[in-house]
Amino acid sequence: MGLLVFGRTPAEVAVAAGAAGADRVYRVPGSDAPGYHPETFGASAAALCQAVAPRAVILPHGPLGLDLAPRLAFLLQAPWASGCAEATVEDDKIVCTRSQVGGKVVVREAYSGLPVLLTLRPKCVDTLAPADRPSAEILDVPVASASGDRHLVFQERVTRPVGVVEELEQAEVIVSGGLGVGSVEGFTQLRELAQALGGCLGASKAAVDREWAPRERQIGLTGTAVAPRLYVAVGISGAIQHLAGCRKSKVIVAINKDATAPIFKYAHYGIVSEWEKVVPELLKQVRAS
């Protein structure tokens, strides 16, 4: 297994890659200039794949993978399995489980031939603890000709002021609110509960669209994907696009006054009640413990 790294590649990368199971780290000379350079990155990745002939190329199903995978697939004339939740090797084939219709439909497909490109959805695979393995060997990618990006000129990277997305991704506890919460004030109460539990606040798309919570707090297919130890869904009906971003949570609690809400099909614990009554009581319990 090899890891392709764009940008700066400090020695710690090779140590961490080795501990995670990689044998080699491939660096792209010149890619440490700031920013994303689509055509240069695509050509470099393709040159590497042509040189080492991997059986599968895995990219994150996110801003990098969704732009780079189709370039690489086209250059290599290889199939691209987009939006994978799982991939296994069965006989001589790579079998991908992908989600479609916003997570509502599951499709299993077998790919043969070399290589296969996969974009893997975040928080779908449990990461293993680092192993006691030697550091990966660092090699430079043989870039044949980097023509540069003449038509797509990178100008600058604008980062969000606070790392809300990172905070959500790393949170052990998330208290999330939806349409049923009904107001900005409701979200203030949810934030209190989240803080008391040592966690942070999330929101459904419906709540974010109504500006009850900031956009960067959105959990779901088009927001952030999370898998905390505890996910408390308050007044969230459980649209499939929301569940796609939280169903890997270890324990899901749903509080909703509608007993038929789809969220209860995915929840481990459910309370059918008005959240306005239950959340303050829950907050008392947490604070008393």
Binding site: V105, V106, R108, E109, A110, K265, Y269, G270, K277
Partner: peptide, 23 residues
Amino acid sequence: ARLLGRYPSAAPGNCDFISGDSA
């Protein structure tokens, strides 16, 4: 790819509903 199957995503559906006569 060869399609092996396409089916609706299954919900676990094993929710433990908490009962109680007050909030």
